[in-house]
Computed example of a mutant assay.
Amino acid sequence: MASETSNIVFDRAQLRRQRNRAAGGAADHDFLLAYVSDDLVDRLSIVTRSFPAALNLGAHHGLLSRRIRERDNVGVVIDADASLNLLMQCTGPRVLADEEALPFASESLDLVVSGLAFQFVNDLPGTLIQIRKALRPDGLLLATLLGGATLRELRHAWLVAESEVSGGVSPRVAPFADVREVGALLQRAGFALPVVDSETLTVTYDSPLALMRELKKMGAANALSGRHRHPVTRHLLARACEVYIDTFATSDGRIPATFELITMTAWAPHESQQKPLRPGSAQHRLADALGTTEHSTGEKPDQVGNSKRRD
């Protein structure tokens, strides 16, 4: 993810090529998208209002859309993706569109969802502003993207291996966002009632190569603009695998891969929404009302660990 003033982080054309090449087998490697889709549908199920016009932005092959169409409170769901090969697998209304340039009129949508697409957007603030403008007042944004702890083991392995073998490092794993940054971006984009939370999912593989192969088949191989264009040598790849195994392998010989899932919920402003109190305006302390003594508990953790196995 990048701010307005930073350089281009992702080669979007390369990302489209990778996703188009991987489209044929995408459904066989969508475990992460399936997990996220289940979670987003669960979150949507507790919302009582209806959404006549919805958009799945970065729709991949339409898995999330198919799940959302089963909801009684959701009407038409439009799939939008920049990969033509993936978009052709979607089953509903489809629009070939990039997440950074939305072709939707102002106040034309009631709901925008996105599963694992925003982490590859260069101008996420700009995308969020476009979404907020496309939503009708009191419209909902519900999206999950990968967070900063994602693939931390793979990042470490490549860093050590390249330092030893090449005497320097090149960007190989994307610089994903963190929870606090995402919350601030929602506020800057003009959303109301923003809520951001994160969950850490740990998946295990037979080997580092098995993980790398799956990332490629997911269309999520290295698409960083600053990547080296020359092929990885066998020696460098072997050393990266050795570092991964030596540092992170579990007692049964498998290797873990971390995926941090950051979910954002936010609303387009509407006069009916509850307004937050001005800081310091409270007339009574909650501790007094409860008859308790107030104690500082420090920073609240924002991650919950889960484990999965990939064979």
Score class of each variant (00 low, 15 high):
A26S: 10
L135V: 13
N222M: 04
V304S: 14
E4H: 15
P175T: 09
A210E: 11
L140V: 01
A143M: 06
V9A: 12
L193M: 06
R213Q: 10
D246Q: 13
A34L: 08
T144N: 01
D79M: 05
G190F: 14
L87Q: 00
L159T: 14
S272P: 00
V165N: 06
L33V: 12
D138V: 04
D81N: 06
V74G: 06
D81T: 00
H228R: 15
G298N: 08
A97G: 03
R239L: 11
P194Y: 06
L159S: 08
L237P: 09
F31L: 14
H60I: 00
A149M: 04
L186A: 00
E99Y: 01
L102K: 02
H235K: 14
L193T: 04
R188P: 01
R213H: 13
P301E: 04
L84F: 09
G298S: 11
A220Y: 09
L57N: 00
N7E: 15
E242L: 04
G219Y: 12
A101K: 14
R309I: 15
W267C: 08
E70I: 00
F120P: 02
I255N: 03
I131P: 05
M264G: 11
I262Y: 03
T250A: 07
L209Q: 10
D206N: 08
R71P: 04
R227W: 03
